[in-house]
């Protein structure tokens, strides 16, 4: 089973890399780029066959390692379906 986990910075948490990318996009001449926030995406292949239990396990993985919930939010997608 294929899963994706998206980890993004919480609102209000400073993102210097996102800011630099935003400025670089403007520097390339792209108009109307109002804000860029950088995040991470993990592709995870699981041996699970049950989507519900896979989601539960992924949630534990996010809380324990993939995200730091002091500063980050996470979203889980299983087989292309948003399951957060």
């Amino acid at each position: 089973m294929q899963a994706r986990v998206f980890v993004t910075l919480k609102n209000g948490v400073l993102d210097p890399q996102g800011k630099a990318i935003e400025n670089a996009l403007r520097g390339l001449g792209h108009e109307g780029v109002e804000k860029v926030r950088q995040g991470k995406m993990f592709e995870i292949e699981l041996a699970d066959t049950d989507a519900d239990s896979a989601r539960e396990r992924l949630q534990v993985m996010c809380e324990r390692l993939l995200a730091n919930t002091v500063i980050e939010n996470y979203r889980i997608e299983i087989g292309g379906q948003d399951a957060s």
Partner: peptide, 17 residues
Amino acid sequence: ACEAGLLPGALMSNAAG
């Protein structure tokens, strides 16, 4: 220590990058 929960909070990238 922050990641392990021995202390509260987190250390982020320096503001100036």
